[in-house]
């Protein structure tokens, strides 16, 4: 009989409690965008490993950025906007221009920067180079498989990557 007497607990303040928690989480949440440019660093060179193969001058696209964020590509001053086009032309040259790369497998892009070069400049150039590679790979994927690169299977992606390997070298600026 005692059970009958039990009153229902008043749930009116539940909303208040929930609101309190809600506001706490609202304040602490930062909808952080987790986007970024992927890069795989080269492993440290082993002292016993053989010296790197000599690369012909014409197979290297040299990009130099100085401390004032001014850029030179193959010793000509260039703007960031043009990097993508130059890179695409260089990679897909296939021996047409005797001064440019022999084929995409051999084409290496070399970035040289100083310690004073700004991060945004580096990221911008890097982004443009990535864009160039993505462009080329997409075009190749469309041509060969009729699909864009993202929609290919893993094996197909690997085939495309092998056809157009992303070879970007960076020199370490001296202290």
């Amino acid at each position: 009989m005692a059970k009958r007497k039990l009153q229902e607990i008043n749930a009116g303040s539940m909303a208040d409690i929930a609101f309190l928690l809600l506001i706490f989480f609202l304040v602490t949440t930062t909808m952080e965008s987790n986007y970024g440019i992927r890069r795989k660093l080269p492993p440290l060179e082993d002292k016993n490993s053989p010296p790197p193969p000599v690369i012909k001058q014409k197979n290297v696209l040299e990009i130099v950025i100085n401390g004032q964020d001014k850029m030179m590509i193959e010793e000509k001053p260039e703007k960031v906007e043009n990097v993508k086009k130059i890179a695409i032309d260089f990679i897909t040259n296939n021996g047409k221009d005797p001064k440019s790369s022999d084929n995409p497998q051999k084409a290496v892009i070399m970035i040289k920067h100083t310690r004073e070069t700004s991060y945004k400049m580096y990221i911008s150039v890097y982004n443009e180079l990535t864009a160039a590679y993505n462009d080329i790979r997409n075009r190749y994927a469309k041509q060969k498989y009729g699909k864009s690169f993202d929609k290919l299977t893993e094996d197909e992606q690997k085939a495309v990557k092998d056809a157009y390997p992303q070879k970007i070298a960076e020199s370490t600026p001296k202290r």
Binding site: G36, I37, R39, L41, P42, P43
Partner: peptide, 11 residues
């Protein structure tokens, strides 16, 4: 030997 790097950027 932590070679995978992501340079965080805005879109």
């Amino acid at each position: 030997n932590a070679l995978k790097v992501n340079y965080s950027t805005k879109k």
